[in-house]
Simulated scan of single mutants.
Amino acid sequence: MESTRRQSPQAALMKLEAAAASARGGFACLFSTADEYETALITERRAQGHYTQDRDYWSFALFVGCALIIVGTVLLLA
Rank of each mutant, 00 (worst) to 15 (best):
S3L: 00
S3A: 01
T4V: 04
T4Q: 01
R5I: 05
R6E: 05
Q7C: 01
Q7F: 01
Q7E: 00
S8N: 03
Q10A: 07
Q10L: 04
A11W: 00
A12F: 01
L13C: 06
L13N: 04
M14K: 14
K15M: 05
L16M: 12
L16G: 04
L16P: 02
E17P: 05
A18P: 05
A18I: 05
A21W: 10
S22C: 04
A23K: 09
G25W: 06
G25Y: 06
G25Q: 15
G26P: 02
F27L: 15
L30Y: 06
F31Y: 13
S32E: 14
S32A: 15
T33G: 01
T33P: 01
D35H: 13
D35G: 15
Y37E: 14
E38R: 07
E38H: 11
T39V: 12
A40Q: 10
A40M: 08
L41C: 09
L41T: 10
I42V: 14
I42T: 13
I42F: 12
I42S: 07
T43K: 13
T43L: 07
E44G: 09
E44V: 06
E44W: 09
R45V: 09
R45Y: 06
R46V: 11
R46P: 08
A47I: 04
G49Q: 02
H50V: 12
H50G: 15
H50E: 15
H50M: 14
Y51F: 14
Y51V: 03
T52R: 10
T52G: 04
T52D: 08
Q53R: 15
D54I: 08
D54Q: 14
D54H: 13
D54G: 12
D54C: 08
R55H: 08
R55W: 07
D56W: 04
D56A: 07
Y57E: 06
W58I: 14
S59H: 09
F60Y: 11
A61Q: 05
F63E: 09
F63T: 05
V64Y: 07
C66K: 01
A67R: 03
A67P: 00
L68M: 08
L68C: 08
V71H: 03
V71A: 15
G72Q: 01
T73F: 05
T73E: 02
T73N: 02
V74E: 03
L75E: 06
L75N: 06
L76C: 12
L76S: 10
L77M: 11
